[in-house]
């Protein structure tokens, strides 16, 4: 079916002709009220931990770098990959294990985030720095800054000129409940997720 016929069918179903002018969208945007704590950092941490993520608050980039090394050491990962973030490049320079040649072989992926949504404990990942480093490995570490926090998704999308080809809101580890609604962590995407926040 071609576009014109398809749209004509929809129009005639609505008993309208192509020339009919339609009403504009209703302007009735609801506000999403939610538990509002005194600090976005605290709210993010609570929500992120509630969905099974690990949260680390650090004071400097140097401390963040040390935390990354510590997590990698404890995880016994053999190789890593990282996304094309400025913040990440300087941090990964000190990592002792080798960078994986193929992303899907890596045990740990390191990235930053576009922003963080406090009321749901969500990382916003976007495609311009690459999609796979935060997706293929079984563990994901995100190094972020507290100034990247926004209260809700509404603020995250406010004032966006255009969207990246992929805008992904990641909330905690990959999970499923497809077998008897029993929560199981780590299906296709990272099952272990850490956020290191520089304050």
């Amino acid at each position: 079916m071609n576009k014109a016929d398809f749209l004509d069918k929809v129009r005639s179903s609505l008993h309208r002709k192509a020339s009919d002018i339609v009403a504009p969208a209703p302007n009735l945007l609801a506000t999403i009220k939610d538990f509002k704590p005194s600090s976005l950092v605290k709210q993010f941490q609570e929500e992120y931990e509630a969905v099974g993520g690990n949260f680390h608050l650090v004071k400097s980039k140097k401390e963040a770098s040390e935390k990354v090394l510590e997590i990698i050491k404890d995880s016994k990962a053999k190789s890593f990959v990282f996304s094309n973030d400025k913040l990440i490049k300087s941090i990964v320079a000190k990592i002792a294990i080798p960078e994986a040649k193929i992303i899907s072989d890596a045990d740990i992926g390191i990235s930053s985030a576009y922003c963080l949504i406090a009321n749901t404990g969500t990382l916003v990942l976007e495609s311009s720095v690459g999609r796979l480093a935060s997706l293929l490995p079984a563990s994901h570490i995100a190094v972020v800054k507290d100034e990247q926090l926004v209260p809700t998704m509404a603020e995250a999308i406010e004032g966006l000129d255009s969207l990246p080809s992929a805008w992904v809101q990641a909330t905690g580890p990959s999970r499923t409940a497809d077998i008897e609604l029993t929560l199981t962590i780590g299906v296709h995407a990272p099952g272990v997720v850490d956020v290191i926040m520089i304050k």
Binding site: V51, N84, T120, G121, T122, S127, S128, V129, G130, R131, L132, S162, L163, P164, S165, A166, W167, V168, Q169, A170, T171, G172, P173, S174, R175, A189
Partner: peptide
């Protein structure tokens, strides 16, 4: 919130790594 919400807007851009 679900674990992942993806907004897919067009194919990969030229500068996107993947």
């Amino acid at each position: 919130a679900s674990s992942y919400v993806s907004l897919i807007t067009g194919p990969k851009k030229e500068t996107d790594p993947d």
